[in-house]
Computed example of a mutant assay.
Amino acid sequence: MAHAAPAPGARPPGAPVTGTVPSPAPARPGATRTPDVFGPRAHAVARWAGPVAAGLVYGYWAAANQRGGGPITGWNVLFGFVVALAFVLLYAAVRRLAGRLRREAHAAAWAAFAGVAFGFLYHQTGHYSVLRSALMAMVVAAAVFAVLFYRYYTHEDTA
């Protein structure tokens, strides 16, 4: 015997009423919404845990590049933590500022952040000149700009 499938968000017949508010309807007809498994607190923690973890990895990487395989010193550890703090603060500033910009400036802000971050790591190795580090940073920034501009252009809100 065939039965009709219930509409998305509808309560099946005979199901108890729990007093929860149903999730909003999908934005587009035929689109499904991914269930939100985590609560608002978990999302708030994840919003900062990712950048902090990335900052710690970046700081460790910069410190390792600077010491060039030599012994780990207190100044080297301090350098790593200062770089990690600067990375996280700059990331937060770009994330806050870039969301308010048009697509070109939005992509340029993230491209500049990525280029400077790469150029700094590249220069910490000590094997290359500042000019080559700047050139490599510009190449990375141009690639990031191209990808992000395409992404923001194709996902632009038409409203």
Rank of each mutant, 00 (worst) to 15 (best):
A2S: 15
R102S: 06
H3K: 15
A64D: 15
T34G: 05
P71C: 13
Y152D: 11
G99K: 06
G39F: 01
T18P: 14
R100M: 03
P71A: 09
P51A: 00
W48S: 01
A117C: 12
A93W: 02
A105T: 01
G99H: 03
L85Y: 12
R28L: 11
A146I: 03
G70P: 13
A4C: 03
G30T: 10
W61Q: 14
G68M: 09
R95C: 05
F79P: 08
W61M: 11
F38H: 08
L135R: 14
P40T: 04
P35E: 10
A62Q: 14
A15R: 07
F118W: 05
A114T: 07
A4E: 13
A142I: 05
M138R: 00
H155N: 09
A146H: 11
T154C: 04
L56T: 11
A107R: 08
V147K: 15
V147N: 10
V116P: 03
A49N: 11
A44T: 02
F149K: 09
T73P: 01
R132T: 06
T125C: 03
P51E: 10
A2C: 06
V144A: 15
P6Y: 06
Y122P: 03
Y60R: 13
Q124H: 04
H127Q: 03
A15G: 03
E156I: 06
V116A: 05
P71G: 15
T125R: 15
G68V: 05
H127L: 00
P12F: 05
V130M: 01
A142P: 05
A4F: 00
Y150S: 11
A141S: 12
P71D: 15
Y150W: 10
A46E: 09
A10L: 01
G14M: 04
H3C: 01
A112R: 11
A46I: 00
Y152H: 12
P16N: 02
A114Q: 06
Y58G: 11
W61C: 12
V57N: 01
A25R: 14
A143K: 03
V94N: 11
A15V: 07
R33E: 07
A111F: 04
P26N: 08
A105K: 04
N76V: 03
P16Y: 06
M1K: 14
Y153P: 07
R47E: 01
R28I: 05
V37D: 14
N76E: 12
W75S: 07
R67H: 07
V94Q: 07
